[in-house]
Design a binder for these strands. Structure first.
Length: 602
RNA sequence: UGCCCGAUGGUGUAACGGUAGCACAACAGACUCUGGAUCUGUUUGUCAUGGUUCAAAUCCAUGUCGGGCAGCCA
């Protein structure tokens, strides 16, 4: 037995090319920016999912490929929906996904840091540079849009002073009806031409908390007849007497996404602000705000790509939250969830997720990615790293009638045929064994080459056995097989080279350890669960099956950071809920099963 | 039906006016002490109609289909 490792990373695919990277490459070529600077800006109102993983891989991938930086920023402008639990999970998930890959590109900031007043091109300016690559030993934290509320407020005042924003007293309902519709122009607010001094005063009093929620808003003065509804005097600030998870009770007014986001990008010196397609119609507003403020440094620009849609999966945070709240799953990190934490708990590695993200590409086309693409990336990765182990999920007892009662021997078995450096272990063998019930059929169909009455099969790493007798209980259920072993057929033996079509896995009954195994399957039965109607009507009732497996003793030392292949079955990872002597294995993904396909063909 | 965006095999993506390629899937075979992995091969595609051009997936026009936009959400 050697001391092996699992350090056989799947070779990284070549850096991808896509329309956004083409733009960045052109900017690098023309020397447009001193440094490429992207950001990943989730709202802390839920856990990150595999769609976010696509965005993380894009933003950090660009930083990595072009020698830039990617800031992690909490886009926390709506205190009603956000929570520190989500902030913590986001940091953990991002770090897990980029560690050892783009961890050295991660932009954070010193704990408590806020934008510094500086002078740029002879004008007053604010700037908050990143600390890159988490080093230095200093206490760091992610960026928070809410750390910019002072500056954003000041920018709002500047907009009012320029006559480009006004305080509006319209009720939420009236604001809505005045906006018009996509095919119908809006109507100007009666407060639109209110004097600058009056707006300034009212805005100051909004900040002071003098007015109740919804009483007034700050609005940009653009064009109520614009064909793009987001240019119809959009709300910039709203009143919310709500405590914020990061700023506490300091504020009673909060900036809207459109106002805060472009300014956050600017304050951090972002060059390429990459988001999903639904923000495409917001881009004119993004540019309008920054240009109206006549800021002294180069402006960031927004680029949009198609979000990920995965077959048999729901991706909206609202729906995922519903699954959690309705206890359809055990939590955000349930291994059936498409969340990063769920995939991690299931046993998927960061490498597999990154390779998946690379393989699906970046476009502006809203397609649905086949689950097989994800599954392939997972299998490809796990095949290279997972240690092979023998485990029997549905035990059927086998007694070797010609094998001595009291004899035990130990057989050599390699840990990973893909990786000689992974070494080997010994597996105990004895007279009484378990094999999987699926590996025996009394009256098998054609092309079945596992065990059958009178037939032979190879016990992996051990002997060739022949089935002599099928023992049944009173109900006719098969409870035991009585077999004889070809005692010369193990490795090195005289008949070891005999060609036997089938090789099956097994464990020694006397040495087997029990383990709980959780067999996960897709959560939904249809490819597009949220295409129409209630997505919960398409839940897969068999998305989880729990069994007690018989495992080879080496699995007693299973480690949560390692991956295992139960030979001929599936890849498994130890669940964090495991206790000493009470292992729990999550099935990450089954092996490809061409026999199952063959059977289906009938 | 106002504005914006998109359309390449079954799915996802490449080709940037010059041979339609890759991945996944599917199928067939080789190999195999995992019906795994690996290897070989095969099938299937430029939304439509015009135009520009020696040459169009690519440029232009029109149409068709799909997606997005009317939160004081992000």
């Amino acid at each position: 037995m050697t001391t092996p490792s699992q350090h056989t990373p799947t070779p990284a695919p070549p850096a991808p090319s896509d329309f956004i990277r083409d733009i960045v490459a052109a900017h690098v070529a023309e020397g447009r920016y001193p440094r490429i600077h992207t950001r990943f800006p989730p709202e802390p109102n839920g856990y990150l999912h595999i769609g976010h993983a696509k965005s993380i891989c894009l933003n950090f991938g660009i930083a990595r490929e072009f020698g830039g930086v990617c800031n992690l920023r909490m886009d926390d402008t709506n205190p009603a929906k956000e929570d520190v639990e989500y902030v913590d999970s986001i940091m953990a998930d991002v770090n897990w996904l980029i560690d050892g890959w783009a961890g050295d590109r991660l932009g954070m900031k010193p704990l408590g840091a806020t934008p510094q007043a500086i002078e740029s091109n002879g004008r007053k300016d604010y700037f908050l540079p990143p600390v890159v690559g988490q080093g230095g030993g200093a206490k760091l934290e992610p960026f928070y849009a809410s750390d910019y509320f002072d500056e954003i407020y000041e920018y709002a005042v500047a907009l009012i002073e320029k006559g480009r924003a006004y305080v509006c007293d319209l009720s939420p309902q009236d604001t809505d009806s005045y906006r018009g519709a996509p095919d119908r122009p809006g109507k100007e607010s009666p407060w639109r031409e209110r004097g600058i001094a009056e707006s300034l005063d009212l805005f100051r009093r909004m900040k002071a908390g003098e007015f109740p929620d919804g009483a007034r808003t700050l609005r940009a003065k653009i064009d109520m007849t614009a064909p793009n509804v987001w240019m119809r005097d959009p709300v910039l600030y709203r009143i919310r007497h709500t405590e914020h998870h990061h700023t506490g009770a300091k504020w009673t007014i909060y900036p809207m996404y459109d106002f805060a986001h472009c300014l956050s990008d600017y304050l951090e010196g972002i060059t390429h602000s990459i988001c999903t397609l639904e923000f495409e119609v917001h881009r004119p507003l993004y540019d309008w705000i920054l240009e109206s403020l006549a800021l002294p440094r180069p402006l960031p620009h927004q680029y949009e790509f198609a979000r990920l849609s995965l077959a048999f999966t729901v991706m909206s945070k609202r729906k995922l939250l519903q699954l959690v709240n309705d206890k359809v799953v055990t939590g955000w990190d349930d291994p059936r969830m498409p969340t990063i934490s769920g995939l991690r708990r299931r046993g998927v590695t960061p490498e597999a997720l990154r390779h998946f993200a690379y393989n699906i590409g970046i476009t502006k086309y809203n397609g649905i990615t086949d689950l097989a693409v994800l599954e392939h990336a997972i299998r490809e990765d796990l095949n290279r790293r997972a240690w092979r182990r023998l485990a029997v999920l549905r035990p059927l007892k086998v007694v070797l009638t010609n094998y001595p009662e009291d004899k035990t021997e130990e057989l050599d078995a390699v840990n990973n045929p893909e990786d000689p450096a992974a070494g080997s272990r010994r597996i105990p063998f004895g007279r009484a064994l378990y094999i999987d019930a699926d590996d025996f059929m009394e009256t098998p169909p054609p092309k079945y080459f596992r065990l059958r009455p009178g037939g032979e099969v190879r016990l992996k790493y051990a002997y060739i056995i022949k089935c002599d007798e099928v023992v049944k209980d009173a109900a006719g259920k098969i409870i035991e097989l009585r077999c004889t072993a070809d005692l010369d057929s193990k490795a090195g033996g005289a008949t070891a080279g005999r060609k036997i079509k089938g090789a099956i896995h097994w464990v020694s009954a006397a040495h087997a350890i029990d383990a709980e195994v959780r067999l996960y399957d897709r959560l939904f039965t249809v490819a597009e669960p949220d295409a129409a109607g209630d997505f919960k009507e398409h839940l897969n009732p068999d998305s989880l099956e729990v069994l007690t497996a018989k495992c080879e003793p080496a699995l007693r030392e299973a480690k949560p950071e390692l991956r295992y292949q139960f030979e001929r079955l599936a890849y498994f990872a130890l669940d964090p809920a495991s206790a000493p002597g009470k292992p729990v294995f999550n099935r990450t993904i089954t092996l490809r099963d061409t026999w199952a396909r063959e059977k289906q063909k009938g």
